[in-house]
Structure formats: structure tokens, C-alpha cells
Amino acid sequence: MAGPKKTVTASSQSPVSAITSAGQDLVKSYVDNTPKRVKIIDTFLLFIMLSGVAQFVYCALVTNFPFNAFLAGFGSTIGQFVLTAAFRAQVNPSTRSEFTIISPERAFADFCIGSIILHFFVYNFLG
């Protein structure tokens, strides 16, 4: 991950265009600097987030009647999301330095155990 850092002169740009250009830079920097494995994690995260948003919208718009089912489904997406995000932080080289005793393999094992326990509670609560 060695792209040259870009600098932008924040002189005479309107906020909207400043944000959009910052956004484009962000995307480009992301695509360049992130390892492929982390990108796989990110697609997984995106999928989970969409699934969670869909369930939340359904709950808000249509009915929240089997509230426990909503909580179980939504909770499963939230839980999976944060577990994966934690896993990403533990594996991503840029943040890995904070974790002194967690190796990536240990991180993966933790992630699996956590997810399995999460799914166990989800299915217990679902019905």
C-alpha cells in the first residue's frame, strides 16, 4: 500500500464539490490501497448491511408483529456485521498493529466461534 498521498488545496471550492472530490479520492484510495482479502470481507459486510437495511425497512413500513423474529433477523445481521468488522480490523495490515497477541489465524478462529454462538442465539430467538 504505497500510493503517493494527494494533497488538495482547499482554496476556492464550494462544499458540495469539495465533498464530491474528496469522495472520489476516497474511493480511489480505497481501491488502490486495500488488499484483496480485505475487499472480500468488505463485500460480505456490504451484503450484510443491505440485508439488515431491508429487514429494518420491512419492519418499519409493514409490520413489526413477530417482534422477536425481527429482532432475531436484524440482530443476526448486526451481529454478523460487527463480528466481521472486528475481524477486518484484526486482519487489515493497517490496523493490525493494535492487536499484539491476536494473529490473523487466531482472529479467524475467534470470528468463527463468535459467529456460531451468535447464530445459535439467533435461531433460538427466531421461532
Binding site: L83, A86, F87, Q90, E98, F99, T100, I101, I102, R106, A107, A109, D110, F111, I113, G114, I117, L118
Partner: peptide, 8 residues
């Protein structure tokens, strides 16, 4: 540790 295992 920052461990998900201990968190769970």
C-alpha cells in the same frame, strides 16, 4: 487483547 473470542 482485542479478542472477539473473549468478547463473545
Amino acid at each position: 487483547d482485542g479478542s472477539v473470542l473473549y468478547g463473545t
